[in-house]
Amino acid sequence: MSRAAARRSLECAAVLGLLAVAVTGCAEQRSATPGSPASSSPSTGRGPAGTITVDAAASLNTVLPKLARGFESAHPGTTVRFSFGGSSALAAQIVAGAPVDVFAAASTATMATVTDARLTSAAPVTIARNRLEIAVPPANPGRITGLADFADAARTVVVCDPQVPCGSAARRVFELAEVAAKPDSYEPDVTGVLTKVETGDADAGLVYRTDVLAAGSKVKGIPVPQAADAVTAYPIAPLSASRNAALARAFTDYVVQRGAADLAAAGFLPPR
């Protein structure tokens, strides 16, 4: 990347970050001012204390809070707060300077935008992997049997936009299966795909296997063989912007070491 291009993209990221912060109003909520009790390091020396904010991919929004409850009871005096969203948007906010302590992304490429900006305080560790699955309405009105049906213009099928992780994974799956997919919509996130399947407007959508499980009886999953070769990884890393580095690292380690069971229960694949 040329210096001019780098500067330009940084500028863009800064503008977008500013907009995102202003729009969501999370600046105030997140700012941990130095010296405030919530963010100060512990004086007792009996392990970490205080509050951290974790930005995490939306697909982690049931598992991580559960792990956090366990972490908080193991470390009294700690509080873990979450901001869930599309990984790409969260990464852009972090690069723009959002005061976040830990980042858990839904793809290594997304995490790379943060590590490239030298904003992580430790190397990212992959905690889980996820694979795509076809989601169809429970009655399967489109009589979807496999990926090939995504090339049928008569059927209404939706996928994520190729510019977000679930969309790039979908593109890889179609390439591997040699299917010329004709989606009726490129949704900006996996929730958009799932909603359209749940309302029955789409005959099928490609979502993460974990989303199919989380949706319960509202959708039915159809496994995709090719998805095994297009898994997406979930890296987590503490961030250098953290004002409570000890707690950020402690929580990261806790998820890496103790998260396997809960992640597996939610349908995630082991890291490797």
Binding site: A89, D161, V164, D184, Y186, P188, K196
Partner: peptide, 18 residues
């Protein structure tokens, strides 16, 4: 939804391109 040329209007394109 969002499909270029069919349903992807300017604001939708801006959001996805962000």
């Amino acid at each position: 939804g969002s499909l270029p040329g069919v349903t992807e209007t300017m604001p939708v394109a801006a959001y996805i391109a962000l």
